[in-house]
């Protein structure tokens, strides 16, 4: 049973980490909490449901397609809804992203009235035995691809000049302006990128996770908890927090009955806020 929790928890946790990463990047660079982030995941899920790919190649192409669509959608949202509110007082972004989420939820509800649908498993095998635990191929591949993307994203952020510009905007926006960084462009790109990551995560989830419109809020909250638990200093905090969340959820669903499962996550959230409000990983410079 312990193995069961460990394996399913970690596999699910990697996907959570990927979803959290999108929120983390947007928050860190732009200081905007995107409360529609979970609904961007739904773009990926419903997008694939709509396309209904039947083979592995068509599934992969469809996944890239929804990512591209979500990136465009995110760009438009940032450019035409968020951008003019960014350097003004008040919490316009909060209202805008929450409203956007609600609008998207109803859109999906109307367009896809049948709840809890999935797509046919695109992977050429159905399940694998890992450490004595039988794992659905969709779940396994989703975790593998999420992990690969997480590593790729961290490489981009920490090792490329594109990532350098992101970190510059995050650490000092006026500094970024003074070295000639076109920050509105960085912002648009970051938001689009965050949306694309979310949609890819959705595309990875849909083969084994039945989708429903209220799932968006659920994922937004989970991503938010992940970013808070992980701390704002490093990508690895977010990844770690994602894994912990996956494990907590797996443990919760084993030991606690049905709807109480998510209370385990909130309990964990509360504990971290009480004991370690700065997040799991703190920037090194604070100690030097």
């Amino acid at each position: 049973m312990l193995m069961q929790i460990l394996v399913t928890g970690l596999l699910q946790g990697v996907i959570y980490a990927l979803i959290g990463l999108g929120l983390f990047l947007v928050f860190n660079v732009m200081r905007v909490v995107n409360f529609a982030h979970g609904y961007f995941v739904l773009i990926g899920m419903y997008g694939l449901l709509w396309i209904a790919p039947t083979s592995l190649p068509s599934y992969l192409v469809a996944a890239m397609g929804v990512a591209l669509f979500a990136a465009t959608f995110g760009y438009v949202i940032e450019r035409w809804l968020l951008e003019f509110t960014l350097h003004k007082p008040g919490h316009a972004q909060l209202v805008i992203t929450i409203s956007l989420g609600i609008a998207m939820q109803y859109f999906f509800q109307i367009k896809f009235p049948e709840p809890y649908q999935t797509i046919a498993n695109p992977w050429p095998f159905s399940s694998v035995e890992i450490l004595g635990v039988s794992v659905n191929s969709g779940r396994l591949m989703a975790a593998v691809i999420s992990l690969a993307l997480t590593v790729l994203i961290s490489w981009v952020v920490y090792r490329t000049s594109l990532g350098q510009n992101l970190r510059a905007c995050s650490q000092s926006l006026p500094g970024a302006v003074h070295v000639g960084i076109n920050f509105p462009r960085v912002y648009r790109g970051t938001f689009a990128f965050g949306a694309a990551i979310a949609a890819i995560a959705g595309a990875l989830l849909i083969p084994f996770q039945p989708v429903s419109p209220h799932f968006g809020l659920d994922l937004t909250i989970k991503a938010f908890i992940i970013v808070v638990i992980g701390g704002v200093a490093s990508i690895w905090g977010t990844v770690l927090a994602g894994l912990i969340l996956g494990l907590a959820e797996a443990a919760g669903s084993t030991f606690v009955s049905g709807s109480l499962t998510s209370s385990v996550i909130y309990l964990l959230f509360l504990l971290v806020i009480l004991v370690r409000p700065q997040g799991l990983i703190v920037r090194k410079a604070d100690f030097a």
Binding site: Q164, A168, Q171, S172, H178, I181, N182, F183
Partner: peptide, 23 residues
């Protein structure tokens, strides 16, 4: 725009420095 000014060669070293502190 400020970033165009910088690209054109007008560079300001600001009073508040605005360094990238975690780099």
């Amino acid at each position: 725009q400020p970033w165009e000014m910088v690209r054109n060669g007008l560079v300001v070293v600001p009073q508040d420095r605005y360094l990238f502190t975690d780099m």
